[in-house]
Design a binder for these strands. Structure first.
Length: 156
DNA sequence: GCCAACGTTGGC
DNA sequence: GCCAACGTTGGC
């Protein structure tokens, strides 16, 4: 029985944390912390172990999908929200009733040729992508068709 | 650096 | 519950 596979797109500013940082982690994994938006959080919580993730570089020229990661640990409490000194501290989240969550992802692949936002915009097959229609959402779903189409572009 | 789009906050 | 004000994101 084949289990359901979901696809996602996670955005990050490479100046802060890029795909090379993930690749260079000793374990090649990291916790995807700091999501402080409810819609993005809900998408994080929907991730299952083994789901694949496009690693998108934003606020860089050119913005582009840089590669692939996979979910290796499903949503768990983002304890950074409890630490007042932390950048992502949220006084409204507490251990009894955590508001924010994170997942662990592992490096899979870095594209030789990143798939740029410009390329994505030019493809009619990708016009329904959340990336184009809700560009600020930092954790978003990708359909299986979109995933395959972008993979083809990355291999060209 | 600008600004459009979007989300959150808080007064009423 | 509405909405103005404000803050953030992110492409350009």
């Amino acid at each position: 029985m084949e289990s359901e596979m979901n696809y996602w797109l996670y955005k990050s500013e490479p100046n802060v944390y890029g795909i090379d940082d993930l690749k260079n982690e000793p374990t090649r994994t990291t916790c995807w912390e700091g999501v402080r938006n409810y819609q993005a959080r809900n998408n994080l919580q929907a991730a299952k172990t083994g789901d694949l993730v496009f690693f998108y570089h934003s606020v860089v020229k050119p913005p582009a999908i840089a590669g692939i990661a996979k979910v290796v640990k499903e949503a768990y409490t983002d304890h950074f929200a409890f630490e007042p000194s932390h950048k992502y501290f949220d006084p409204k989240s507490n251990p009894e009733k955590p508001r924010w969550f994170m997942v662990d992802i592992e490096f899979v692949e870095k594209f030789d040729t990143p798939v740029t936002l410009e390329t994505i915009k030019q493809e009619p097959a990708l016009k329904e992508m959340v990336l184009l229609n809700n560009s600020r959402l930092s954790v978003q779903p990708v359909s299986a068709r979109e995933w395959q189409f972008i993979l083809e572009l990355a291999k060209q």
